[in-house]
Amino acid sequence: CFDSRRRQSPRSCQHADLARLAHESRFSVNEVEALYELFKKLSCSIIDDGLIHKEELRLALFQAPYGENLFLDRVFDLFDEKKNGVIEFEEFIHALSVFHPYAPIEEKIDFAFRLYDLRQTGFIEPEEVREMVAAILKESDMILSDELLTMIIDKTFADADSDKDGKISKQEWMAYALKHPTLLKNMTLPYLKDVTTAFPSFIFNTEVED
């Protein structure tokens, strides 16, 4: 990362861009600039092109650039608004803003819905939930009988699918998640409340005063 681009940063992200991104998110200008420090680290960890590739996100989350993970794929797809296979800085800010402790719970619920709606049909279907549970069991080297897995899925849908049409709509998911707030635990990153402290290198780089 110690190239000329690093010395230019964060000036390569102009103040107008920082201000616009702050306006579009729950972050202050200083916080957007601090997150640019994190973005730079992630986006040069494998390919130094100022964009986060899936392998770089995987490396940041798992400390390994290779390996399949269903959830990482879905998270990456949701960050990648333009669907061009990379995460740009403004996409990074937009998505992280949902994880801000002060972001509206409706935004968090919506993000989680899109994450679980694997095939993007507008509904969470039993096959998708089964696929996600099976992926975690495999990831964790746990074994569960098909019968027990079916029981768990059936019980979950009995609770969440209030109109009993065999799939969970966004409205049903909203009601269900509000009733079970622990489901949204991963949708809040406490670090984002004080991001300028989390990235002290920012203090020496910033030229912006909030």
Binding site: F71, V129, I136, H180, L183, N186, Y191
Partner: peptide, 25 residues
């Protein structure tokens, strides 16, 4: 304990936990 499939997913999925993005920096 894990009779709620979504609770199981949200508590067990490491790919859905972005905090390590901050912890490892």
């Amino acid at each position: 304990k894990f009779f709620n499939a979504f609770e199981f997913i949200s508590s067990m999925s490491s790919g859905f936990d972005l905090s390590s993005m901050f912890e490892n920096k």
